[in-house]
Design a protein around this nucleic acid. Structure first.
Length: 569
RNA sequence: CGGGGCAUGGCUCAGUUUGGUAGAGCACCUGGCUUGGGACCAGGGGGUCGCAGGUUCGAAUCCUGCUGCUCCGACCA
């Protein structure tokens, strides 16, 4: 490709709308342009990178037994009503009507379509397993699209669906995908961790998210400093704490004026924060009052709490509702709460506390020497707290770190949720009707491109890993009017091209500085500079974008040397 | 959905407080000059100031409504 023909409008200034590096750089380097909020045009450079990512995905999916198909973007409402998700997805789906008033949606995902497809064709266990995938646009009317391609309303996703005859078959398909994902993200040059995650509303039994580590990521993950345990912080489990060998003292009510916060209470009573119990009140979708209790220095994990009480959604409780249940906001405890009006959930670590301080359900009063085992009464006891840095790893006990990441893929055991809802089954060895045991496996393709940039860039621009760079090598003649330089550049260009290197020749009639700046901004892994030194001293100057290293090759050896260089990028 | 902010040429922004001939830098076009890190000189083109109303002799500027973008929060396979 000649740069003079490339549609890659670079910007010197950062567009005001872009907040994070990947978004800014993709706009500045001429990769994307916005058409509407969360909707982008991919320009040639972005499209090349996306196609390379897709190709890696295809190769790994095919190697794992997947077959590529293409399902419709526009999907009939009937299938969604059958699975029950027409309402569940609700406002997050783009819905359209045809001229007859029939309802359709723009596919936010494809479980319904694929389940319908397979149930019509697969009749026997002998035909299983089936692994089908596609790479295609998805549509979600996100409440808040942001960060460019990171959270768009239209985005590219690879989704594969597995159909097995039983759980053990699903386990095999799941493992294949897990391994394939590991290969894919390694080949893309990303730093990532597969992390355990919560199933959420989709309702699966087991799931891992593949998270690219990046400070700008939207999800928090807990990573063990010693073993390979890593989990989304919503999921990260906490080991039981043993109760200290302490004599239980008698419960005592004390006056604690103006102490609505934990900090105020412990200061007033001069207690360590580990001796205090914090209360947080929620209401669920059925307006049930859920009162959660954790140690003073801990935070409530809303997802765990939600699972503990089998709620779909939680919101902060209204003060009147707390009062009606016998509680006093700011001074709440399980002692004296009306169990008919409040569901009490106590974190497991609280149950191991001795002689603790908690609210008295009375304004400006707290109990001291509360012993949960003895005093709290009826309660759901579960792990409901948020993991924090330094907490012990549930596998090996070493401290965990909390870090941020970008969720670029997930593998999910669906089980029979959709096959049951949509009556999708087959006949087993005994001639009995059975539902498919399904899995779904997604990769955010356009998001992966963003994540790569978030992980690898500097103040000058993007630094592409070779495998997904739009071009691997850029040749920059210093002076476009110098015929000797242009001729040599062209020779090198043709030679690299013939060697199947993705190469670009910057033949624009620009000054050298402009071309250097653009090359750094766009992020070609390798740059070959053709100036006087190349003509007079046989110095084919070759620079590695990532390290800044400069190699002085010759006309004789550059072809081999450049390809060697690329091996390690 | 709640709370902020913004909307002026392709981009970044000034001008709005206090109404009076629409500006700068970059980008673009022409000519010259220059060529190892976003040059320089001269000339030039391009904007119904987001949209719709209103106030006024006169509105980018004041008022009302709307739309879009954006940030924080809530939400999120």
């Amino acid at each position: 490709m000649y740069a003079s023909n490339l549609y890659a409008p670079t910007l010197r200034e950062v567009p005001a709308e872009a907040e994070i590096p990947s978004h800014q750089l993709m706009l500045r380097a001429g990769f994307i342009r916005k058409a509407a909020g969360g909707v982008y045009t991919y320009l040639p450079l972005a499209w090349r990178t996306l196609r390379k990512i897709e190709q890696i995905i295809r190769e790994e999916m095919d190697a794992a037994g997947g077959q590529e198909i293409a399902m419709p973007i526009m999907q009939p409402s009937e299938l969604w009503k059958e699975s029950g998700r027409w309402e569940v997805f609700g406002d997050e789906m783009f819905k359209v009507n045809d001229r007859h008033g029939r309802e359709f949606c723009l596919g936010p995902t494809h479980e319904e379509i694929i389940t319908d497809l397979v149930r019509n064709e697969i009749r026997s266990y002998k035909q299983l397993p089936v692994l089908l995938y596609q790479i295609q646009n998805k549509y979600r009317d996100e409440i808040r699209p942001r960060f460019g391609l990171m959270r768009g309303r239209e985005f590219i996703m690879k989704d594969l669906y597995s159909f097995d005859k039983d759980e053990s078959g699903l386990d095999i398909s799941y493992q294949k995908m897990y391994d394939a994902y590991t290969n894919i993200f390694n080949r893309c040059g990303l730093v990532f961790r597969p992390v355990e995650a919560d199933g959420g509303a989709i309702g699966g039994s087991n799931t891992h998210e593949f998270t690219a580590l990046a400070q700008t990521g939207e999800s928090e993950i807990a990573v063990c400093t010693k073993c390979d345990y890593a989990a989304n912080n919503e999921k990260a489990e906490l080991a039981l704490i043993e109760a200290p060998a302490e004599t239980e003292l008698a419960l005592e009510k004390v006056a604690t004026p103006d102490t609505k916060t934990i900090e105020a209470v412990i200061e007033y009573l001069n207690l360590p924060i580990e001796k205090s119990i914090k209360a947080v009140a929620f209401e669920d979708e059925h307006d049930r009052l859920i009162c959660a209790f954790v140690r003073g220095d801990h935070e409530v994990n809303e997802v765990k709490l939600q699972n503990a009480v089998e709620a779909v959604s939680l919101r902060m409780a209204d003060e009147n509702v707390i009062t009606a249940a016998g509680g006093v906001a700011g001074f709440m405890s399980p002692i004296g709460l009306d169990r008919k009006k409040a569901v009490v959930v106590v974190d497991q670590s609280v149950m191991a506390m001795k002689n603790a301080c908690c609210g008295a359900n009375e304004a400006d009063k707290h109990y001291i020497n509360a012993n949960p085992q003895r005093d709290f009464g009826e309660a759901i006891v579960k792990d409901i707290r948020l993991i924090a840095a330094g907490d012990p790893c549930p596998h090996c006990g070493a401290p965990v770190e909390i870090t941020r990441g970008i969720e670029i893929g997930q593998v999910f055991k669906l089980g029979t949720k959709y096959s049951n809802a949509m009556h999708a089954g087959f006949l087993d060895e005994n001639g009995r009707e059975k539902p498919f045991v399904m899995g779904c496996y997604g990769i955010g393709v356009s998001r992966t491109m963003s994540a790569a940039i978030e992980q690898l860039h500097d103040e000058n621009g993007i630094i592409w890993p070779k495998a997904i760079a739009p071009y691997e090598v850029a040749i920059v003649p210093i002076n476009a009017k110098d015929e000797a330089q242009m001729e040599l550049a062209e020779t090198i260009y043709q030679a690299l091209k013939n060697a199947h290197v993705d190469v670009l020749l910057d033949d624009r009639k620009e000054r050298a500085g402009v071309k250097f700046k653009d090359a750094d901004l766009i992020g070609y892994p390798v740059r070959i500079t053709i100036g006087p030194k190349a003509i007079n001293e046989d110095n084919i100057e070759t620079k590695v974008r990532k390290t800044g290293e400069i190699f002085n090759f010759t006309k004789e050896n550059y072809l081999v040397k450049v390809q060697e260089l690329l091996q390690d990028l």
